[in-house]
Design a protein around this nucleic acid. Structure first.
Lengths: 143, 143
DNA sequence: GTGATTGCAAACTGTTTGCATTTTG
DNA sequence: CAAAATGCAAACAGTTTGCAATCAC
């Protein structure tokens, strides 16, 4: 009945709220971001529930964990391969399409069995751009 | 006199040990990895010193912070732009050269001022490959 | 000598775990 | 009704901070 049946997980009201929060969410929210949203409907919601639901969703490939933001995991309901554009000041993350996918130079694979790849782009978002234009050098970009 | 003079920071014995540990280090060590190494020579060395030195080095662009590994920062003394190849099982990180650099599709920049980009490649390293071959599907790759 | 660095401990942030209670299928 | 999820609190890991003692320049 419920639109989230296909996740294959037991649908508790809390989980439905989390799934609703994630559905089509392009903000790449952290666990706390999600917690704050679902807690509006479920004041008793605990962090442990958010984390355990995210763990199950990750296992079922319904969500992907991003490590772009140091010291805080962020989650992306878009699990098809895509790239990101990250603001080095406010850490906003938006999806980015690229014109091509880079390849490792043949002999550079060093015995690795390749599974996937993705590219992160760093920059200043429109908002931060205003305040920090010309100070790009002050920001370290590499993840 | 000391080979690390050019870093522009006050050279205490502890800092020299940290710089020695980082010099040419291709292992992308975490703060703890560094701590364990320098503590052999300086048993009184504290974590705070490692972190504060890393903070200064980061500021002076002598080292770059990697967020590839969730929940644990790793450091790279190679500050020129380059890419990484990461083992999804043991988190080993090695440098990788690519044949090309992807570009954002023109209208995709969404008002961002671009500063930099890099590509992460995921796979199984030679060692883990043996034990986990055929189980690639069990590993989530996206950072 | 003075300002920066060290070492220690305590504080903090984000995440994980144990367990009694409740709920889903 | 059995297996799984919740909520709470406590435990954890990694990182940061405050401060007195020490050290580099």
């Amino acid at each position: 009945m419920n639109e989230h049946r296909d996740t294959g997980l037991r649908l508790t009201p809390q989980r439905i709220a989390i799934l609703d929060c994630l559905k089509g969410n392009k903000r790449h929210p952290s666990a706390e971001d999600i917690y704050r949203v679902v807690r509006i409907k479920f004041p008793t919601m605990s962090f442990a529930t958010v984390y355990s639901t995210l763990a199950v969703l990750k296992e079922k490939r319904k969500v992907v964990e991003l490590t772009i933001d140091a010291g805080k995991k962020r989650y992306d309901p878009e699990t098809l391969s895509h790239n990101h554009l990250i603001c080095v000041v406010c850490k906003k993350i938006v999806d980015a399409a690229t014109s091509d996918t880079p390849r490792l130079r043949g002999r550079e694979e060093q015995g690795f069995k390749l599974i996937a790849s993705h590219t992160d782009f760093y920059g200043l978002c429109p908002g931060c751009r205003e305040h920090y234009a010309g100070q790009e050098d002050n920001y370290v970009c590499r993840s």
